[in-house]
Amino acid sequence: MKLEGVEIRTIRMPLVSPFRTSFGTETVREAVLVRAVGADGEGWGECGASALPLYSSEYTPAAAAVLSEVLVPALGGEDLDPHRVAGILSPFKGHRQAKAALETAILDADLRARDVPLSYHLGAVKDRVACGVSVGITPTIPALLDAVDGYLADGYVRIKLKIEHGWDLEPVRAVRERFGDILLQVDANAAYGRADIEHLAKLDAFDLSLLEQPLSADDLGGHAMLARRIGTPICLDESILSAEHAAHAIELGACCIVNIKPGRVGGYLESRRIHDLCVAHGVPVWCGGMLETGIGRAANLALAALPGFTLPGDTSASERYYETDLTPPFRLEDGHMTVPTGPGIGVTPDAAVLDEVTVSRAWIPLAGAAAGAC
C-alpha cells in the first residue's frame, strides 16, 4: 500500500473503577492511537503503554515522541507491505509497543483496502472466544469477594487475581472457599523473587490453573527453579518479548504456558509467530489485556481466535473498563465475545467520542507535505 501519512493521538479515558496491581493504580487509561492513511483508506492501531513506565520502560509521552520523530519517518513514502514494517523498524532498539501500534495501523489499512478480516489473515478458526476477567487488588477481602461474585454473575468463565506481598494466600483462599471449583489463576506481575519460592509453593493448595509471571522478567533461571519446585503451572508474560524469548523459556523449562500480549511482543504478526512456536511445542497460549479500548480489543479478539489459544484470555467486555468505548461496545454473551468479521480489525472509532477524549494529536506526512500538530 502507498502510505500517505500517519496521525498520532494521545487520549485519556476514565476507567469505571480503579485498577490496582503491584505496578500501581490506574483510574484513567492514557493511550496512544495510530491512524495510518493510505491511498486506498486508513487503519488503526493502539499502543499498550501506560502513562508511566511501570509495566515496561515504555510510556505514552515517549511512545508518541518516538512514533512521530523516529518510527513513522523511517517508513518513507514508498509502497509498503505491512509484513516489512518490523524489518524496517528493527534498527531502532526497543519500543515494541509503539512499533506494534504502527504495524497494526498499517496492517489494518491494507486489510481494509483488500476487504480481508484480520482474524482470517492471522489464521483464526473460531468465531467467538472464551473470556476471563482480571481482578485488581482490592482494599479488603470482602470487597474482592463482591467483585468476583459480580464478574461470575456477568458470565466470565475464568477469574484472574492480581497478587503481591501481603496480598496472596489469604485472598486466594477466600475466593476458592467462597466460589468452589471455578477456573482460577493468579498474576504476580513480577512482584516476587527467588527467596519467595517456598512461599509461592503454598499456592499449590488452591488448585490454580496457572501462576503468571511470579519473578522478574529477566529471571528465566529462577522461573525454571520455581517450576521444578511447585505443581502450579508457570505462565510467563513480561519475560516473553518475541518468539526467540519464548523458545528460550520453553527450552529452559521456565514455563509451560505463555501469555501473548501483542503490544509487548511487537505486534500481531510476531504474536502469530509465538503462537505457532508454542503450538509446535505443545504449550498453550492465551491473550493478555492492557486495558485496551475497542480498537485494541477488536484486534485481540482476532488473535485469540487462533487454534493455540485454548485458555480464556483477558479480553473483557467494554463495560468492564469504560462507560463509553471508542467503538461500538464489545459485550459478553454466555462467557464469550464474538470475533469481528469486518475488514481489518472490523471496527472504526466514533469520531465524536474520539475527539472528546483526545488530548493531543499530530500528523506526520510521508508524501511531501509538512508535519505539524493538528
Rank of each mutant, 00 (worst) to 15 (best):
R229K: 15
G132S: 09
H199S: 11
L203T: 03
L203M: 06
I159D: 00
I197V: 13
T232N: 05
E212H: 08
G132F: 04
E170Y: 04
V157I: 13
P233D: 08
V175Y: 11
L241N: 13
V135D: 09
R229Y: 11
T232I: 00
L144R: 01
A217Q: 04
P233L: 02
G180I: 05
E170I: 01
D219C: 01
P139Y: 03
R176H: 12
L241K: 15
D219E: 01
V157E: 06
V175W: 05
I163D: 04
I159E: 02
A143K: 11
A188K: 04
A153Y: 01
A224W: 02
D181H: 15
A205M: 03
G136Q: 08
G193L: 01
Y151K: 15
H199F: 12
S209L: 11
D218L: 04
L144E: 02
R173V: 08
R173P: 04
I240C: 06
V175A: 09
A188R: 02
V175E: 13
G132M: 10
E164W: 00
R173T: 10
R194G: 07
L152E: 09
L220G: 01
K162W: 12
A224P: 00
T232M: 01
D146Y: 05
D168C: 14
I182Q: 12
P171C: 08
L208V: 07
S134T: 13
F179E: 13
Y151D: 10
S134H: 13
F206V: 07
Y192S: 08
W167E: 12
V186P: 05
